[in-house]
Design a protein around this nucleic acid. Sequence first.
DNA 1: TAAAAGGAAACCG
DNA 2: CGGTTTCCTTTTA
Length: 310
Amino acid sequence: MSNPEGSLSEGTVYGSRIGMTEDTFALLERNRVSAEPWDLEETKPNVEALERGVPGLYLSCFDMLLTEDATWLVEVSEASPTLAMSPGLQRQEEERSLEQVQSMVVGEVLKDIETACKLLNITPDPIEWNTGNVQKWLLWTEHLYRLPHAGKAFQDLTGKDLCAMSEEEFRQRSPQCGDTLHAHLDIWKSAAWMKERCSVGDTKTTGAEDLWSEADSSCSGQPIHLWQFLRELLLKPHNYGRCIRWLNKEKGIFKIEDSAHVARLWGLRKNRPAMNYDKLSRSIRQYYKKGIIRKPDVSQRLVYQFVHPV
DNA sequence: TAAAAGGAAACCG
DNA sequence: CGGTTTCCTTTTA
């Protein structure tokens, strides 16, 4: 936010580039506020902050007008009183605020998609999904927004098939939530398209590009290890703080607050639907002799310690 | 009663 | 082969 002008213009570009209509934003906002399943918090970070941020953002713009530009305003108003805070200027400011909000929303959407990709181990671009990826995405989207299970209706479809389908075709396969699923897929498609445009386009670094490069760096490489996965969760307390958190970050001591939940996430990531805490904890115990994770000096239930803290 | 601890064997990229 | 995953028995808080 150090450069409001920059993010304002970027927001404009993104908004139009990815073709997000006001309806799209309305849908996003509605879903963000209404749904709250068990894992809403993990995948919908900063919802409250965002919503609180909106009036705050407006106020800070207003403050700038009143402070930094006050002398300018006075000078202008003396020279030409009609120009000071003319309706046109006001509308411009309002539009800028709106654009800023929109760019924030886009940023949040990208973050959510990044989170989902890491969790499901799928690519952000739906075009690349195989049938398994599609099912994962469906499962994910369904319980994120409390939709009835419709995976069966989309069985054996690849991401490419899915992307080629119209909203009507979605509704045919799932009368209850086809339209919602179509809308969400649309968001993913838009984001993927935007990502492509950003990476080949201008070299100017933007907030959104940072988000994607962050996603790329962690998505690449070998199959993830359990200890890495746990670190990832711990790195995002805003998303996962309810199920796993640091007790002492410096010493690497953490506590699993919701064992079943963490196990479910691990199972999702590794494609092991039968994963549970019994098995996950067995895997953690394998780390004892390897010197990766140990029990803290004062052993407590569900509390472990990284042998080599960051 | 859930969690902790490990042995043993299967699984899989 | 390594890194789990699965299953199991016994012990502990």
